[in-house]
Design a protein around this nucleic acid. Structure first.
Lengths: 186, 186
DNA sequence: TTCATTCCGATACTGCGGTAGCGTAATTGC
DNA sequence: GCAATTACGCTACCGCAGTATCGGAATGAA
């Protein structure tokens, strides 16, 4: 109806937020500083994102380029690729950032949906591969695929957020071995 | 060397904090209000606990009574009992509280240690039972017990913090079935 | 009893996330 | 061109976690 928003501001703010997030993580990111760095009033910032959490989620969403995944004929190889990728991604993320996003997601349903959308892609890919492995008879089929996915992804977050143990590629492979059974020599 | 601390203050503050936590969760707990409710200066409070997170962890530690666990001869039954208890405990806890504690733990090593100590008991019990199940041949022994424990506990936290799905007793049993294999009718 | 040490309360402060209100400028539909 | 509407910047404010500083009082050791 009337004056449209200045589209350039979004980019400037997101760039400033990215720099802040890179330097000090989630807690080190100050909305006041982001606004100042972007040369923008804080009120303008809050006109676009309802909270610091939503700003950060939006930022991560833009930063994130989805690597398209094309399944092969070997479910074990596919799973290894997917799960180690997830583990590497998590290992490269500050645990406090993951925890802070989880906390914000638990508080605000809007943030929760946005955060879940961040992880939905890989989650879905893993589910598809697990289902295929079950069809191929590689996995006992007495358990729903969703549960197996939880047992692949869950331990990664558990280690990162609860026990604090490192997420190595080796650990990811161990998880897959546990779900699929030991690799059979041919 | 000199004047000792007033031991009664600890109790008053913890009681006030408990009431605040009950009412408004972690984020709703205000240190200023806790101090006011306890009739104590905020500086006095910070002399005992270095941060809000440490106060809350100390509070939870005092609230928590460990139920001693005595293993039976049936590892499956023991696991079911343990994992469903953990699931029920988590399900009864506000997810944001768990996430906030995880975030505080990720930031401050002191808090991290305290939080990990909260969960260490059950974690250890589950590990012991899993090891026993492996000795009894109930589980394939190509995977370390610690990994199996991660695959029992991890999905619970994963659901609570990431996917937001409910933690039902049925889900806990499904996790055990997945690890131990389907129950054999006799 | 004296003296050093520590506790406790009080006050004031910082930076934080987030909100309210206002003046002004820009843009739209007419 | 005009009027209604909205964006934007600015200032001031709130409650929050946490810190600094101070005075006075209590307690230990000598």
């Amino acid at each position: 109806m009337a004056r449209p928003r200045n589209a350039a501001i979004d980019g400037k703010v997101l760039a400033a937020a990215a720099e802040e997030l890179r330097r000090g993580g989630y807690e080190g990111l100050s909305v006041d500083r982001v606004a100042e760095r972007a040369g923008v009033a804080k009120t303008t910032l809050y006109r676009r994102w309802a909270s610091k959490a939503e700003l950060v989620v939006a930022l991560i969403t833009t930063l994130r380029e989805d690597v398209p995944f094309e399944p092969s004929d070997d479910p074990r190889r596919d799973l290894t690729e997917l799960v180690t990728a997830i583990a590497a991604n998590l290992a490269a993320t500050p645990p406090s950032l993951v925890a802070d996003l989880a906390a914000a997601a638990a508080r605000d349903p809007r943030v929760g949906e946005a955060v879940r959308a961040l992880w939905a892609g890989r989650h879905q890919a893993v589910t598809a591969v697990v289902a295929k492995a079950q069809e191929a008879g590689l996995v006992l089929d007495h358990v729903a695929p969703a549960v197996l996915v939880d047992q692949l992804a869950g331990p990664l977050y558990y280690r990162l957020l609860v026990t604090g143990e490192p997420l190595t590629p080796d650990y990811a492979r161990t998880l897959i071995d546990s779900v699929l059974g030991p690799e059979e020599p041919r």
